[in-house]
Design a protein around this nucleic acid. Structure first.
Lengths: 328, 328
DNA sequence: CCACGGATTGAAATGTTTTCAAGTCACCTC
DNA sequence: GAGGTGACTTGAAAACATTTCAATCCGTGG
């Protein structure tokens, strides 16, 4: 067997004393940053793990961390439950780190890195390329779930949001609706951008105008207010595409409150297919995200990237389907 | 300054070699259990922390672990979000461990113990007294949230489930309902036991019979089926108390499907006051759990128990109130 | 220009972990 | 039931890692 690698080897390679190596790993403040970087680089190159790191690892191996932002949108708890099940079936454990709205994902990921989780799945907002690279260097795969980020070469799993938007538009055209509106999510999310782009593109191709596109912030209350304004306005829509289901349910409620028949007076389509969409009160027509497949692909990608780090940057886009119920 | 405590001191006190002390803390399998226990006890008595333990602690201090089972019931994601916010505001971090339905809470808690979380909040099913004691010995407070367990002297925070059940019964009496039914949760949970006991006791006191009490398993689909059977049966109820909101919404849907007017033909009351209860489609009358206060009390109890371990065993019961909307 | 103080560093002292060889015990084979 | 086999434990000692300490460096203010 190859001789075991010790702190001395690392020290020699980095051109420092053994003490410095130890300090680098104990996050001792008394060590200059450049020296710490050199040591950590050398340690990586030689495959050295300090006893402290080992102790942490022994407690954290086999865990996958889910970094989630919005737990109020039922899609995420459902996704978390599904992930939890799949991860446990694979003999691993799931940890969920919630990101407070005002907090940076980067800070949380640094956390996750310190925990030496096997991998991170991120469903919340943007992360910097810097932290993405840090994670990659540390050998921790990071997978964006239901999010895409084109700038950093990020691995991601999402459904075909663009195609979903198109499906909705085509269905409204098939129903021959004339005044078609959309309730948007948050303008800076990839899901909003893709879904609305698909919807707009298809409408244009079909020669139908988009009469209104208020912002619903992916939340029930804001979407309800937006929908109410729409229905009370001068040119009420006869079709509304809400960019997620929670907002679609708000639109249904607002339509009923306005005395409009669904789907006769106004057709409504949502996105996600959360469990509530199927409830008898709503029977919402929606674009289904293939949650189970997305989860399976995510775990797949984690293993693939673990085995071969160059896999990074893949984006898996899974097909959506329209579930036609009774609101459109 | 008192001489620093080393592994040698612990070894002497425990009557073992220094090696054994090291092994005890590195979760090395090659050490008999009784010896490990002796070592850990001696270490606790002397206040010794191994470097390995320190390394793990440095990464895990400030974290509170939430052990949750059922993420499908919206009450728990909402509670998790609320907890997450409060915990972050206190400068700590929240980790969520999901418990797969077939898995033991004990095993998960052992996990959490190994992580050296500052505290654990448990919302899922029963835990053994053995693990409870282990956690207490390790100095990790465990708080049951929305659960009570009378056997082990467990610290717990819950709302006044019994009073909530009474409130529902009294309201039905006020509405002069004659055929009163209940849709139960899971018979082995403390929430089911308390809520149904309060409801039954108050009905008896008011001289009204309970005509039926099917099992709804705290889930939408089973509750929907149970309610449908109730309304299609020979003696359909004119009032239904569902032991949580998700089931209450199912009962509303089932009533509407059966062509019954709510609340005229059948009055319906839920429990929890999840956000959906307020949605215009339902406007559910329900018993509100004081979630924010429950969260605050939970964090309070964690700190109190951290400061003084004898606090263990406290049960804080917070008052509920009935939110009257339009289903009863 | 010098005294001071804090940050940084390697050598050495102090601790911890791992290896190794020996001991123990349960279980299987004959 | 004797003896063999292998897995598990164990303490001593070797190998390692961490911390202490004294020395050095460097910037700051007098």
């Amino acid at each position: 067997m190859a001789r075991k690698i010790t702190a001395k080897d690392v020290a020699e390679r980095a051109g420092v004393s053994r003490s410095a190596v130890s300090r680098a790993f104990r996050s001792d403040r008394s060590l200059s940053d450049d020296k710490r970087v050199r040591v950590i680089e050398a340690a990586r190159a030689l495959g050295y793990v300090s006893p402290a790191a080992q102790a942490v690892a022994s407690v954290t191996t086999g865990t996958i961390t889910l970094v989630a932002g919005d737990l109020e949108n039922p899609f995420y708890p459902v996704a978390a439950a599904e992930l939890s099940q799949a991860i446990h079936a694979a003999g691993r454990r799931l940890i969920l780190h919630t990101v407070p709205p005002d907090m940076d994902v980067d800070a949380v990921l640094q956390q996750v890195l310190d925990y030496r989780s096997d991998a991170a799945i991120v469903t919340s907002a943007h992360m910097s390329s810097r932290i993405a690279r840090t994670c990659r260097d540390a050998g921790m795969p990071v997978i964006l779930f239901n999010r895409v980020q084109p700038d950093a070469a990020m691995t991601a799993v999402t459904c075909d949001n663009y195609a979903g938007g198109r499906l909705a538009a085509q269905h409204f055209a098939r129903l021959d609706r004339q005044r078609i509106a959309m309730v948007g999510g948050s303008a800076d999310t990839s899901t909003h951008i893709e879904r609305s782009r698909g919807f707009r593109d298809a409408l244009t191709a079909l020669g139908r105008p988009l009469t209104a596109a208020p912002d619903g912030a992916y939340r029930y209350d804001t979407a309800f207010a937006a929908a109410r304004a729409l229905f009370d306005g001068p040119n009420p829509p006869d079709a509304v595409f809400a960019l997620n289901d929670v907002m679609a349910l708000a639109v249904v409620d607002a339509a009923r409150e306005a005395g409009l028949g669904v789907p006769d007076d106004v057709a409504i389509i949502g996105f996600d297919d959360i469990p509530m969409a199927a409830w008898p009160s709503y029977r919402l027509t929606t674009i289904r995200q293939p949650l189970r497949r997305m989860v399976a692909e995510t775990l797949d990608l984690i293993d693939a990237q673990k085995a071969d780090p160059t896999v990074g940057g893949t984006i898996r886009i899974l097909p959506v389907e329209m579930i036609r119920r009774e609101t459109a």
